[in-house]
């Protein structure tokens, strides 16, 4: 199909879609006038039932924890897919002859200083965001991304990395799998100790506002944080290996 014909077909479809969207949106509640019961009920039970003060995390990791499990596995699958797609192809220049090459990013002194200075604070912020998921805005997904950023900052600071060809970084792959398995195991713990998969009450409530409160929600956040951080580091390492790192010249 030629380009112009394709655009005409698309235009016809898009006009129809726009009309359907206008029709559908007309039936939605006015902006600011949400009256659904779901949000109100969840907000009412978060405190008394689970000692969780962050209703958003309570929803994601307790009321709808199965949805979050599936989202986590999308991240898990995406990381594996990226590794599979970016693996060494036949007919490409071989790196396998020198599997022990030490790779180094092209970096500048200013970037090295900033990277080195940021590595510590970023780690602390990441752990803080993950640990307080049940209490304040934050949680495993957000903290996991910040944790992965720590690895990026360290590489930007000029860290030498060894990436064996055809193999994702072992440590990141390990915490990636540990996080995914941990989420399922915590769900099974709910099944064994509280009678329902991903029931979080078995871990006890704790005092409202304390670091260890909200049942198993903090544990689920830690699992998610590890999984997300591992997945993103695996993906970034694969992209880095493509051509952003240079083989370090042996020092003479």
């Amino acid at each position: 199909m030629s380009r112009s014909a394709r655009l005409i077909v698309f235009a016809a479809g898009a006009v129809g879609l726009a009309a359907l969207m206008a029709w559908g949106f007309a039936g939605l509640p006015d902006f600011g006038g949400y009256t659904g019961r779901y949000g109100r009920i969840v907000a009412q039970i978060a405190g008394p039932d689970r000692a969780a003060t962050n209703t958003v995390t309570f929803t994601a990791f307790d009321v709808r924890a199965v949805d979050t499990l599936v989202e986590e596995f999308i991240v898990f699958a995406a990381a594996i897919a990226a590794v599979a797609l970016l693996r060494h192809q036949r007919g490409e220049p071989e790196r396998a002859e020198h599997p022990d090459d030490v790779l180094r990013p092209r970096t500048s002194p200013a970037l090295m200083v900033v990277g080195a200075a940021l590595a510590g604070p970023t780690t602390v912020i990441a752990l803080n965001v993950i640990a307080h998921g049940a209490l304040t805005p934050g949680g495993g997904f957000q903290g996991g991304v910040v944790l992965a950023a720590t690895a990026v900052v360290i590489v930007a600071a000029g860290a030498r990395v060894r990436l064996p060809p055809d193999e994702p970084p072992r440590f990141a792959e390990f915490i990636h799998g540990l996080g995914a398995a941990g989420f399922v195991l915590l769900g099974l713990a709910g099944l064994v100790f509280a009678g329902a998969f991903l029931n979080t009450t078995w871990a006890g409530h704790g005092t409202t506002g304390a670091l260890l409160s909200g049942g198993a929600i903090p544990l689920l956040n830690v699992a998610t944080g590890l999984e997300v951080a591992g997945a993103i580091i695996v993906i970034l390492a694969e992209f880095l290996e493509q051509n952003m790192l240079v083989v370090e010249e042996p020092e003479s």
Partner: peptide, 17 residues
């Protein structure tokens, strides 16, 4: 966000942030 927004309401986070 447009569907879920409620005018004049606070975020459902009950800790002293």
């Amino acid at each position: 966000l447009a569907i879920g927004y409620r005018s004049g309401a606070k975020a459902p986070i009950f800790a002293d942030i």
